[in-house]
């Protein structure tokens, strides 16, 4: 489903020289599987999520990334989204004056239009929204407020998952979705994520900690260090990391 082959990418800051962050990253996530990416700060986890979703300021200098065989890297971010790629942001953005539901409906219809599907009707949208909100224990009043404005860290993360449930993506990248969540919120969020498992969907769960993986059980775990996957294994690898830390896996350049 998602295949990365020897991917090299630079971050290009507005001021200052560009730096290579991804240094030959290879990874394959087949449909229906959940893969976790773990790694210390600065290993390239967030860069990976931005490169895959097409954010400005990152230059891919080598390698490839395909989604169901299509070259991802040449597509605009919104085209990738319409193909079913979804990023749950580590730091969700505040969108002043735009209520959550207005935003999500615009997104939903934009994606549907891009795929040549009819727009969602108001009653259908409301029904879907109610279902998603109930599952995530989100108060319906919150959905009428401007997106993320004045929301707590936990509420923002919950709303990322709400958007995910609404948009029903085919491949999800969860970038440190566990950060800022207390244990109860973590359970609720994980339930939401697990509801989307299977059915040919793929998932990349980026995290520092094993904790999230207790609730979202990965099929594979990869350790990212200095822009490369240095070790891959089953769910046990995460437990091993938790016990003995990253040091044993880190490569010295």
């Amino acid at each position: 489903m998602l295949e990365l082959n020897n991917l090299h990418a630079h971050v290009v800051p507005e001021d200052g020289p560009s730096r290579e962050i991804l240094k030959g990253l290879s990874l394959a996530v087949p449909a229906g599987e959940v893969h976790a990416i773990m790694g210390p700060n600065g290993s390239g986890k967030s860069t990976l999520s931005y490169v895959l979703t097409g954010k400005h300021g990152y230059d891919v200098t080598g390698g490839s990334a395909t989604f169901d065989g299509t070259d991802l890297l040449s597509l605009e971010p919104e085209v990738r989204a319409a193909k079913g790629l979804f990023l749950s942001f580590q730091y969700p953005l505040e969108i002043a004056g735009v209520p959550v539901m207005t935003f999500v409906r615009a997104a939903m219809n934009a994606q549907r239009k891009a795929r040549g599907e009819p727009e969602v009707s108001a009653p259908e949208f409301l029904k879907l929204s109610k279902l998603a909100a109930t599952k995530l224990r989100i108060d319906s009043d919150m959905l009428k407020r401007p997106l993320n404005v004045g929301f707590s860290g936990g509420e923002k993360k919950r709303l990322e998952i709400y958007q995910m449930l609404m948009l029903q993506p085919r491949f999800m990248i969860l970038d440190e979705t566990d950060s800022g969540l207390d244990i109860d919120a973590l359970k609720v969020v994980a339930e939401g994520v697990n509801a989307l498992r299977g059915a040919g969907r793929g998932m990349l769960v980026i995290t520092h900690y094993q904790r999230l993986l207790d609730y979202i059980k990965p099929d594979r775990v990869h350790i990212l260090s200095a822009g490369r996957i240095v070790k891959s294994g089953g769910p046990d690898l995460a437990l091993e990391l938790e016990k003995s830390g990253y040091d044993q896996f880190l490569k010295v350049d």
């Binding site: 979703t53 954010k55 971010p77 997104a107 934009a110």
Partner: peptide
Amino acid sequence: FYARQRGI
């Protein structure tokens, strides 16, 4: 970018 990632 956030909006575009959602397909807009």
